Simulated scan of single mutants.
Amino acid sequence: MTQQRQVREDRKLDAGALRALAHPLRVQLFDILSQYGPQTASSLAERTGESSGATSYHLRALAKQDLIREIPDRGSARERWWERADKSVSFDSPEALASPAIRSATQLIMNEFLGRRHQQLMRHVSEGIASPDKEDDAAMISTANIHLTRDDAMALIERLSAVVDEAVAGARGREEEPDRLPFTIRVDVFQLPEDGDGR
């Protein structure tokens, strides 16, 4: 009997959500909430170097689009806690991407997300080289080059997505347990340009 994988239900971001997210600080706030869990405007201000007034303003803008939500039973009227909504998000809504302005907003968002993640990866590499005695066997940076058909690539993407989805589902809601640290999982599968140009 074959076991069917539950299809992940991503929230396809509409034009309103994409416009709300298309700001470098909002992308950063959304990403920090995704990676490190619940935060306050003050803790986000410390992490980003912005004022708590600025982070509070941008948090409210993200909340209006249901990208994040306030945690009502945590904190006080003066110190509100925020968390990212549960669903994964997808940037490939055909309706939203029909607009050149929304395609431009999506590109800005993806550039900010990936730039931030790349900086984190390079910091990890630099600190590992600078501290050769540091034990870090809970990390892997690996690349492989293979030739695939489109169907092969789609099957690989589905298998990798299943592994990531399973790990995320198993860890969800357990962030406060002792010894749990924030990790990032990054899986890249894409066709290389024909001309070999990496730019």
Results as ranks from 00 to 15, higher is better:
residue 1 M to Q: 11
residue 2 T to Y: 12
residue 3 Q to K: 12
residue 6 Q to K: 14
residue 10 D to C: 09
residue 10 D to N: 11
residue 13 L to A: 06
residue 13 L to I: 08
residue 15 A to N: 06
residue 15 A to Q: 09
residue 16 G to N: 14
residue 16 G to C: 10
residue 17 A to G: 04
residue 18 L to G: 00
residue 19 R to C: 03
residue 23 H to F: 06
residue 24 P to C: 02
residue 24 P to D: 02
residue 25 L to T: 04
residue 27 V to P: 01
residue 28 Q to I: 05
residue 29 L to F: 03
residue 31 D to G: 11
residue 32 I to Q: 00
residue 32 I to N: 01
residue 36 Y to C: 13
residue 36 Y to H: 15
residue 38 P to L: 03
residue 39 Q to I: 00
residue 40 T to C: 03
residue 41 A to T: 02
residue 41 A to Q: 00
residue 44 L to K: 01
residue 47 R to G: 07
residue 47 R to S: 13
residue 51 S to N: 03
residue 51 S to W: 01
residue 58 H to L: 06
residue 59 L to K: 01
residue 63 A to F: 04
residue 63 A to D: 05
residue 64 K to W: 08
residue 71 I to F: 03
residue 72 P to V: 03
residue 72 P to N: 02
residue 73 D to R: 10
residue 74 R to Q: 09
residue 74 R to N: 03
residue 76 S to C: 06
residue 80 R to W: 04
residue 81 W to A: 00
residue 82 W to C: 00
residue 82 W to L: 02
residue 83 E to W: 06
residue 84 R to V: 02
residue 84 R to A: 01
residue 86 D to W: 11
residue 86 D to G: 13
residue 91 F to H: 00
residue 91 F to D: 00
residue 93 S to N: 14
residue 96 A to E: 02
residue 96 A to R: 01
residue 98 A to M: 10
residue 98 A to E: 13
residue 98 A to Y: 08
residue 100 P to H: 08
residue 101 A to E: 15
residue 102 I to K: 01
residue 102 I to Y: 01
residue 103 R to D: 07
residue 105 A to K: 01
residue 105 A to Q: 04
residue 106 T to D: 03
residue 106 T to H: 03
residue 106 T to F: 00
residue 107 Q to W: 09
residue 108 L to D: 12
residue 111 N to W: 10
residue 114 L to R: 11
residue 114 L to E: 11
residue 117 R to I: 10
residue 122 M to N: 06
residue 125 V to W: 07
residue 126 S to Q: 14
residue 127 E to G: 06
residue 128 G to E: 03
residue 130 A to L: 08
residue 131 S to V: 08
residue 131 S to P: 05
residue 131 S to W: 10
residue 135 E to D: 14
residue 136 D to K: 08
residue 136 D to M: 11
residue 137 D to R: 13
residue 138 A to R: 15
residue 139 A to L: 10
residue 139 A to M: 13
residue 139 A to W: 09
residue 139 A to P: 07
residue 140 M to S: 12
residue 143 T to E: 08
residue 143 T to Y: 09
residue 143 T to H: 13
residue 145 N to W: 10
residue 146 I to H: 08
residue 147 H to G: 13
residue 149 T to K: 04
residue 149 T to W: 05
residue 151 D to C: 07
residue 151 D to S: 13
residue 152 D to Y: 04
residue 155 A to D: 15
residue 158 E to W: 06
residue 159 R to W: 10
residue 159 R to G: 08
residue 161 S to G: 13
residue 161 S to D: 11
residue 162 A to N: 08
residue 164 V to N: 08
residue 166 E to R: 14
residue 167 A to M: 15
residue 170 G to K: 15
residue 172 R to G: 08
residue 175 E to Q: 12
residue 178 P to L: 06
residue 178 P to Q: 04
residue 178 P to M: 03
residue 181 L to G: 10
residue 183 F to Y: 15
residue 183 F to P: 05
residue 183 F to D: 07
residue 185 I to N: 07
residue 188 D to F: 11
residue 189 V to N: 07
residue 189 V to K: 06
residue 192 L to W: 07
residue 193 P to M: 07
residue 195 D to E: 09
residue 195 D to F: 08
residue 195 D to Q: 09
residue 195 D to C: 06
residue 198 G to H: 11
residue 199 R to S: 15
